[in-house]
Amino acid sequence: MGLEDLLPPFFATKLQTLLNWSRKNSLWPMPFGTACCAIELMSTLSSRYDLSRFGAEVLRFSPRQSDLLIVGGRVCVKMMPVLQKIYLQMPEPKWVVSMGACASCGGVFDTYTMIQGVDQFIPVDIYIPGCPPRPENVIDALQMLQEQIGSGKK
């Protein structure tokens, strides 16, 4: 941040707090849904669970307009380069949520074509367990992430 260097230290700290506060309350998720977890993600976003109550309302299918990558589903060897490309295309600051057993560790699919956890190849901030995780888990994960962003840890 160039702006912080120009200000006296006191203001810079306050400015950072303000920035973190605004970032955590306006996350723009980019859904990378490749399998059944994506279905649960949809239900989390729609009216019954309504993720927008927690400040992650607008889904963007363009990585250049989003800052939270939600990897929901199995990732195979043909998809991994695509996922990495998408991660690189997202502007900083950015966060990654690995949703479900498959994205986190390969799940039951221990075969030649399945990535055994996307965290081997892209940095992951929050893991959600479950197959698929319930919408409550996703909301919980989002709030954990928001806490970390707000306190400046991430």
Partner: peptide
Amino acid sequence: DYPLRGRGERDDFPRLRRGEKED
């Protein structure tokens, strides 16, 4: 005679780090 877990194809990707920039 091909092993179920492959011959390392699934581990053969670059590892991205935090803050890495797009080429």
